[in-house]
Amino acid sequence: MSSIISIKGLSKTYAGGFEALKSVDLDIGEGEIFALLGPNGAGKTTLIGVVCGLVTPTAGTVTVDGHDIIRDFRATRSRIGLVPQEMSIDMFTTVWSSVSFSRGLFGKPPDPAYIEQVLRDLSLWDKKDEQIRTLSGGMKRRVMIAKALAHEPEILFLDEPTAGVDVELRQSMWQVIGRLREHGVTIILTTHYIEEAEQMADRVGVISRGEIVVVEETGTLMNKMGRKQLILYLSEPLAALPAELGVNGLELSAGGTELHFDYDTHADRTGITTLLANLNRAGLSVRDLETRQSSLEEIFVDLVGSQS
């Protein structure tokens, strides 16, 4: 995978002295969906702002498709589309003129057929002559995406695209993102819905207090960082853990009716066989059992929690 965005030693200290980014190194591969996760104030928006030209970096370099974002700003910015987190849009223009304006601003010749396609893809076509202020919140957000796509960018930044958006719109947004990926567009998004990152992203980066904590393929991260848990539902409640069960990572729960056992699937021996054998020997009967894998959200909380 060749990298389309290369960030090296990027730091940003704001005028008030707040260090939003601390020597960040990050490479984004061409055509991937990259999810940048992090708590509020972690530096996600600052990072995006630097790459897009909204924030002046204090130190470090960023190249986009081999071009420096400051020296060759025309080359880098013309490749990038940005959907910011805030609803920032001129309410008094029509959808059509707002999206056409964005295309012109990025130096592209008018292409009504392309704009029509973008508006149709985002279910905005029948609203094209409406003033933006008359649209619903979700529709306005779609217009912002249409504006970011108006100049046919190769890279799309989506800062919290699904925050405060209803389920239906979220799903249609993910469809649009999926189609863009099929066309080879690189997508970098931040989201609070970690489930979405889990489902959509090829790779996940976790940022906390201005530092990249981990960057990993989503599946690998889940395997590596994720824990599995075996839950045994007992027929009779226990007052205390019997000593003869003899395995580590065992916990009595739900008023003594459940046994929770954390285990590592990658270990040579998980301890499950021993546990089941010892249960049998102790004369305990099991009504039901299930296994659970920790979600990306739990991994995220662990990672960010260990930082602070």
Binding site: G53, L54, R74, T76, L82, E86, I89, G107
Partner: peptide, 16 residues
């Protein structure tokens, strides 16, 4: 006005 309503992001992120 673009500064006030936030749309200045588009001007600043454009190749201009």
């Amino acid at each position: 006005f673009p500064k006030f309503n936030g749309t200045v992001y588009e001007i600043l992120s454009a190749p201009i």
